[in-house]
């Protein structure tokens, strides 16, 4: 059973009603088909109304949906011959970030992403998709490997943030993130990042210094979670809904601010409703990005990234 989000409840209620009527029609002699047709038309309209006018907080809910597809799901649907590579060669293998080599449309690529678990057991193993320094160092190792073999890099961003723990601090969480930012800036191959769920702060950005940044329509990218923002700014975490609006964290918001390149359309109600269809939407954007970026020389790619980030910021001169 897929979890129903509060804002979709009217749709689910109507759907149940239609199902009931259908059952009734089938079992009893009364013909309710006219009624059913009428209600189905209303359902279509309602779905359109609700899914086309999602509030920021609704999108946050979808981005956090327990059934939302993860990096691994997209790798399976988009790529063939995926070979996962492990470890940072320094300390350990962080399961909160996965990465490896694969074929995308017949082209070898390196693909890396944050990895959440699908149940509690896996979430404990993967630390709820919140990496330690070794996760970022593994990601960087794979990026450098991609650069050597001239493979484009695709990064999938899906984390609440880098893990705030004692061991993480001891092993240099700050340095691991900072190093990725500086090293990604200098990569001689195309880098494409896609935010597929939650893009939480520095822990997300450490896979995000890309030539093209895309976001799924119902994903978020922010400096702090809406709950955190609400508790810092208004000393009340329950104001998260208002914070989600005020902080401008949704894909359409970031597109408006010209921070990201593309908002990738999602299937009605969110990517979890039809993963295959969602992967198709994503594939199209990725192919376009790759075609565009592969025309650039290594120097142009670095320059392109430089100009992209140099231009972000609002101030009066």
């Amino acid at each position: 059973m897929i979890k129903v989000l509060p804002f979709e409840e009217p749709i689910v209620q109507l759907k149940t009603k239609i199902e009931e009527l259908k059952e009734y029609t089938a079992s009893a002699d009364v013909d309710m088909s006219a009624e059913i047709i009428h209600l189905e038309a209303r359902l279509k309209k309602l779905e359109h109304e609700i899914y086309e006018n999602m509030e920021p907080w609704d999108r946050v809910q979808v981005a956090r949906h327990p059934s939302r597809p993860t990096t691994r799901d997209y790798i399976q649907l988009l790529c063939t011959d995926f070979m996962e590579l492990h470890g940072d060669r320094l300390y350990g293998d962080d399961a909160a970030i996965i990465g490896g080599i694969a074929l995308f449309e017949g082209r070898p690529i390196t693909i890396i992403g944050h990895q959440r678990g699908i149940d509690t057991k896996e979430n404990i193993k993967r630390n709820f998709g919140m990496p330690h320094p070794e996760g970022y160092r593994k990601a960087l190792r794979l990026m450098k490997q991609a650069e050597k073999f001239k493979r484009p890099i695709i990064c999938m961003i899906d984390t609440k943030g880098a893990y705030p723990g004692k061991a993480a601090e001891e092993r240099g969480q700050s340095e691991a993130i900072a190093r990725n930012l500086v090293e990604m800036a200098g990569l001689k191959v195309p880098v494409i990042s896609i935010v597929i769920g939650e893009g939480g702060s520095g822990g997300a950005l450490a896979l995000g210094v890309a030539n093209h940044i895309h976001m799924l329509e119902n994903s978020t990218y922010s400096v702090i979670s809406p709950e955190g923002a609400a508790s810092i700014l208004w000393k009340d975490a329950s104001l998260a809904k208002q914070a989600a609006e005020a902080m401008k964290i949704t894909a359409p918001d970031l597109k408006k601010m010209e921070i990201i390149d593309t908002v990738i359309q999602e299937v009605h109600g969110g990517a979890h409703k039809n993963i295959e269809a969602q992967a198709e939407y994503m594939k199209e954007t990725l192919i376009n990005s790759l075609i565009e970026l592969e025309k650039l020389t290594p120097d142009e790619l670095i320059e392109n990234r430089y100009i992209k980030f140099k231009n972000i910021g609002e101030f009066n001169e």
């Binding site: 210094v209 980030f309 910021g313």
Partner: peptide
């Protein structure tokens, strides 16, 4: 990061990094 500037402040981390990369 400066909370009141939201994701723009997050992106300053990347902005300063691309400049440092070139300097390096």
């Amino acid at each position: 990061a400066r909370m009141q500037e939201g994701v723009l402040s997050l992106m300053q981390m990347a902005k300063t990094s691309v400049a440092l990369r070139r300097h390096s």
